[in-house]
Design a binder for these strands. Structure first.
Lengths: 344, 344
DNA sequence: GTGAAAGCGCTAACAG
DNA sequence: CTGTTAGCGCTTTCAC
């Protein structure tokens, strides 16, 4: 069974390609094609197992009905949940998804954008960027190319974005820890440090302490390179617990850090929260099942995906004059026992 | 900055499109185009920021350099790890990925295949199928369309496959449990039950018991619909622990079941392994961190992805006479404390 | 109501 | 060494 083309359907019916195309795109009636003819065409197409070649249509119309998604790593639960939500929301509008992982490499990200945009594979891109400079995106904006930033924004770049209240989410967590009785709250963050999400979380941490008249102790803030988490974590924890630092709680700024931290704590035979209370940004299924279950700032992954698609489709369909829009979503504090009562 | 086409580059240089195309596709030398001219073309293309339109090229050559991936749910860790591995391996060969979740719905899966294959979006498909009948795939095979089944196969369908030793993996686990001292090993499985992976696991369970001269007790085998795991789990566990059944260990046949089971056990305030030992097919990051850490059959996700891409690319590049190949990968038993010594 | 013809941007056979 | 030409399969304008 060979691939059938429009032409072959037309020939089989003894009509023109135009007619078949019109009918199959439901423009039959608006062109006054008789109902009878329409039916004949529909039936023949079905009978011949005809499906239009989307590549050809895409070339002709400039519309592939595919969206691009670029994230750091699709195997990270945070991104894979968002991806699923994007997929579903896009499907509602007849779009499908090309998926790319940038591995936090700005050059690779740029290559991917080139692939998706300049080589015209997709009609718009959703990206959790790892760039430091706005150039790539300001160029896209100037070109009028539809894109939406999620999770991370770039300073001085006005564009459609879906962000969560990273600073506020972190502040809420720090204040919860303070209220519970923790006094030496450590922060483990990740490099590259230029990521807005991470920066804002660090800011939120500092602000919360300041608001509570607690001096920020640089010894309590630790930075681990994203591609060497496992090796560095244990050392950092040991130092946090040393007499010079004496942390009593640690806040991990993303889910990879948290997973690794929990592992290390387990290997080191430390008790949570007695030896060290633990909290994480990003909630994972796993956190509910840990012992003790881990308190976390939870991000609305599904909502992030939905909003991103909504904004992207708006751009694709909208006049170029459309204003940029920013969706700022709330995080929520999920309190579990990993930073339970200080004395328990 | 508008999109530049091949024609425009050619005109800017005062040469033909052919020349530019040849040079940019590195076929310059083989057509004896002077090095000098080649250089001029390369530079001009770069200067004008020219990138070929892949849709046009795809239409002409019939090659989109995109692969399709269809899984039940990309937000499931098992599939997202595989997806990442596929992405990386495909990228090495210059391919990118379109991603689709079927939600275990055979009709949706068929629609997706139609989209990807019949509408000519991709050059080959990797699929974890949810079909019961081989028709879709035998048709694809007859059409000579490249595809690889992963994770689940179909009886009486000869095609490229990447599978793990589900029966054997399960057997190993059951035997480990028996050796540790458990006598009433329950199985929680999932419907739809026609999935080969699940069926083989059930078979592996029964075989292991038989080999050890233990009668299979149907009361110990429980089936939960995949889209209602949460609601059913608690009831099943309660029944397993009832005096009529008296299970002392439970083996969950996939990661979703295991997550839900652990949650229920926690809510019910049961102790693992004293009240009930727990083991899972599929290993998750979370299992290491649970209390106690969960024993699991671990699948080689990365290897699955790599093999699948390898086979798919072989098909794409190979003569139609190529024989189907099956990659059968090993699982490994990861023993943790959730089914520790029976008496501990 | 229907059809002819142009053309999206590219590649490749063929000609010179 | 380089150019001409013919499509890939589709949509869409315009003409009848």
């Amino acid at each position: 069974m060979k691939k059938i083309s429009l032409k072959e359907v037309a020939e089989a019916l003894g009509v023109s390609k135009t007619l078949v195309s019109l009918v199959l795109n439901n423009k039959g009636s608006e062109h006054g094609i008789s109902v009878e003819t329409q039916k004949r065409v529909q039936e023949k197409a079905k009978e011949m197992n005809y499906y239009p070649n989307l590549v050809a249509r895409g070339l002709r119309t400039g519309k592939s009905n595919i969206l691009g998604l670029i994230v750091a790593d699709i195997s990270n639960a945070f991104y894979s949940k968002i991806a699923r939500s994007i997929e579903d929301k896009a499907a509602e509008a007849g779009y499908h998804l090309m998926l790319c992982s940038s591995d936090e490499d700005p050059d690779r990200e740029n290559d991917l954008i080139r692939l998706l945009k300049d080589r015209q594979q997709v009609n718009g891109i959703i990206v959790s960027t790892t760039q430091q400079k706005p150039e790539t995106f300001s160029r896209m904006k100037k070109d009028g190319y539809p894109f939406v930033l999620i999770d991370r924004y770039l300073p001085r770049l006005e564009c459609d974005q879906v962000m969560v209240d990273n600073a506020n989410g972190t502040s809420k967590m720090v204040e919860h820890l303070l209220k519970t009785g923790y006094k030496r709250i450590a922060l483990i963050t990740i490099s590259p440090t230029h990521l807005s999400s991470i920066r804002d979380r660090v800011t939120g941490y500092k602000d919360a302490l300041k608001r509570n008249n607690i001096k920020v102790d640089p010894k309590l803030i630790r930075e681990i390179p994203f591609d060497d988490i496992r090796n560095s974590m244990r050392k950092e924890i040991r130092e946090l617990l040393s007499p010079q630092v004496k942390a009593d709680a640690v806040f991990l700024l993303n889910n990879n850090l948290a997973l690794s931290c929990l592992e290390s704590i387990q290997e080191m035979n430390l008790r949570i929260p007695q030896d060290l209370a633990v909290a994480s940004f990003d909630d994972l299924d796993a956190f509910l099942l840990c012992y003790p279950p881990v308190t976390a700032v939870s991000q609305p992954m599904q909502k992030i995906g939905e909003e991103a698609v909504k904004l992207l489709l708006e751009q694709i369909d909208a006049p170029p004059s459309r204003q940029s829009r920013i969706a700022e979503l709330e995080t929520s504090l999920v309190i579990r026992k990993s930073c339970g009562s200080y004395l328990s």
